[in-house]
Amino acid sequence: MRWLDVRRHSLTKKGTARGRGSHLSADGVALARLIGAGAGPYERVVTSSSPRAVETAVAMGFAVDDTVEMPSGYVEGVIPKHAQWEWAAPYARFAEIVRTGGVAAGVAEAHRAIWTDTVGGVPEGGTALLVGHGGGIEFALVACLQEDSHASWGAPFAHGDGVRLGFADGRFVSVSFQRAPRSRCERRSPTPL
């Protein structure tokens, strides 16, 4: 068995301080450090090419081996940005959207392929880390575990939330959610990326 830990990037700067690529805020660095203290070791670390994803892995304490362009999970005309926060059973809804095919299914498959390649690059018994984005992670999860009980998976990915997937015989076989600690001022709802 191989393992893949997937995390949504940490908290970012807001307003004019945001900058191109949404760099991490001081709270985001602190959250990533807290998460990183209980994570790893990793044989391979892959992130989105976005600065906020790279900075999350580094703040967690892990060098980035590779960056990958990841398509947005917010598909125009299908899923408005942060719509998953309004859905009663977000993963069941993502699975339903994937089953209908089209562009959204292509996004889910692109993410699943990135995840498979990432975990495939570690030895048997090893673990890889992938840092990505809300919307894309949810799509990838339902694509990786199509037969699972999606309605029982809970809330979409907030900043720093993670999941550990078991990978055997060329496919994902298990899932365990790892929710990040929440600060007093942070909501479990979307904030602009």
Rank of each mutant, 00 (worst) to 15 (best):
F62I: 04
F62P: 03
A63Q: 14
V64Y: 14
V64K: 13
V64E: 08
D65I: 07
D65E: 09
D66E: 15
D66R: 15
D66H: 14
T67R: 14
T67S: 15
T67L: 09
V68I: 08
V68N: 07
V68K: 11
E69R: 13
E69F: 15
M70V: 03
M70H: 07
M70C: 06
P71E: 10
P71C: 05
P71I: 04
P71A: 10
G73R: 07
G73L: 02
Y74S: 03
V75D: 07
V75T: 05
V75I: 05
E76D: 09
E76M: 06
G77W: 08
V78N: 03
V78A: 08
I79A: 13
I79D: 06
I79V: 13
H82C: 00
A83D: 05
A83M: 02
Q84I: 00
Q84T: 00
E86K: 06
E86H: 06
W87P: 00
A88Q: 06
P90K: 05
P90D: 04
Y91E: 00
Y91V: 01
Y91D: 02
A92C: 05
A92G: 10
R93W: 08
F94T: 03
A95C: 04
A95N: 03
E96C: 01
E96H: 07
V98L: 08
V98I: 13
V98S: 08
R99E: 06
T100A: 11
T100W: 11
V103Q: 15
A104N: 04
A105F: 08
A105P: 00
G106Y: 12
A108R: 09
A108H: 09
E109K: 09
E109Y: 11
E109T: 10
A110F: 12
H111F: 13
H111G: 02
R112P: 05
I114F: 10
I114M: 02
I114E: 06
W115Y: 14
W115C: 08
T116G: 07
D117L: 09
D117C: 10
T118F: 12
T118C: 11
T118P: 04
V119W: 14
G121S: 13
G121H: 14
G121V: 03
V122W: 14
P123W: 13
P123D: 13
E124C: 10
G126S: 11
G126Y: 12
T127L: 11
T127C: 15
A128V: 01
L129C: 06
L129V: 04
L130G: 03
L130I: 04
L130V: 05
V131L: 09
V131R: 13
G132F: 09
G132K: 08
G132P: 01
H133T: 00
H133K: 09
H133Q: 06
G134P: 00
G134R: 01
G135C: 04
